[in-house]
């Protein structure tokens, strides 16, 4: 990439970051709370981008670890600790555990099949959440969740502004960690797998293990986002994790992020903003418009032939579906 372009992008990133830090003093409390929820959703979108763009597993099921993380942090908050860091750790672990449990379902599938499997997993989790009244409050949800303190010895996050800044710091740190990891050997192997998975296997790499690893890591990120959601809105219900959320996430990632972690965050912001704007101008038809946008997304998904240039290390080149193994047909009694 030309140096000027890189400098320009750095500049834009810096302006956006400063804007995000200063935002709470420029807008009202309601908008600040909305921004905090958007950050949580943006972090889930990052996990969707990891799966969709980096590992080639387009997913509609990241609401499952997101929900697991949210309810895990509610439980911890009620019984163990009011420290945000503890909530984040437990939520990430819960998301990772749920993702690990579903690894066998997804690692050998591809493309649209993954969409269907992950959709089923997501819906199943929402159903369980709706029925498990003793922990989740059922479909009514849990309200009045007490605020957390970020670390031991710090004051509790009593205002929307404080909760927003907490979410901002957590998202910045986690996204930074994801970007750093993608610059290491892990990122290199993932890029190679997206280029040609069969060739990677032929070199002796355990590709299924790589995919499983990304799946679990994405589950942890989504779980942590669940904890942020609880902090941001102090309320949680199964409606936060329904199909419309999954669809918005995939839409966000296709808009901004199959090839980029930062783009996933921007995509989430655009999607939330346009959803709320649509609800304002077309009260009745907003779900229909979003539904159409989603259908278009899925329709575009497997083909997505126009690949933006690979931006190494930072943002990742796209690959919505992993390429089918371009092999000769199998001989009889043989697995290729």
């Amino acid at each position: 990439m030309p140096r000027a372009l890189r400098a320009l992008r750095r500049g834009i990133t810096a302006v956006v970051l400063v804007g995000l830090v200063l935002a709470p003093s420029a807008v009202d409390d309601y908008t600040v709370a909305l921004l905090a929820r958007t950050l949580a959703l943006g972090l889930v979108a990052v996990s969707v981008a990891l799966l969709t763009g980096v590992a080639g597993l387009p997913t509609l099921g990241q609401t499952a670890p997101y929900a697991a993380g949210a309810y895990a942090s509610v439980v911890v908050g009620g019984q163990l600790s009011d420290v945000g860091l503890v909530h984040l750790g437990v939520a990430a672990a819960a998301g990772a555990a749920l993702a690990a449990a579903t690894v066998p379902l997804v690692v050998s599938a591809r493309g649209v099949v993954v969409l269907m499997i992950t959709l089923a997993v997501g819906e199943l989790v929402v159903t369980i959440v709706g029925r498990w009244r003793s922990v989740t409050g059922g479909t009514d949800g849990l309200a009045g969740i007490p605020p957390v303190r970020p670390l031991w010895g710090l004051p509790v996050l009593a205002t929307d502004r404080a909760r927003y800044l907490y979410a901002l710091v957590v998202v910045a740190v986690l996204v930074g960690v994801v970007l750093l990891v993608l610059r290491t050997r892990v990122g290199l192997l993932l890029r190679a797998g997206r280029d040609d998975e069969a060739r990677l296997r032929a070199s002796g790499h355990r590709v299924a293990l790589h995919v499983a690893g990304v799946h679990v890591a994405a589950g942890a990120v989504a779980g942590a986002a669940g904890s942020l959601l609880v902090v941001a809105q102090q309320y949680v219900s199964p409606a936060d994790f329904g199909f419309d959320t999954s669809a918005l996430l995939l839409l966000a990632v296709v808009i901004g992020g199959t090839w980029s972690v930062g783009g996933a965050l921007i995509g989430a912001a655009i999607v939330i903003a346009s959803r709320d704007w649509l609800f304002g101008v077309l009260p009745g038809q907003a779900p229909l418009v979003l539904g159409l946008a989603f259908v278009a997304t899925v329709y575009l998904l497997p083909g997505a032939g126009h690949r933006p240039p690979a931006v190494r290390g930072r943002l990742l080149p796209p690959a919505l579906t992993r390429r089918p193994v371009p092999d000769r047909p199998s001989p009889t009694g043989v697995r290729a």
Binding site: R191, A192, R194, D195, D196, R199, L200, R201, A202, A310
Partner: peptide, 29 residues
Amino acid sequence: AARARRGVNRIHQRPAGWPTLTVRENVLV
């Protein structure tokens, strides 16, 4: 994959490694 880990390597003709990786990265992987 298992055979490659045991030291049986094939020289592939069709694609040369991973096209969007650099030459060095290809060999490293």
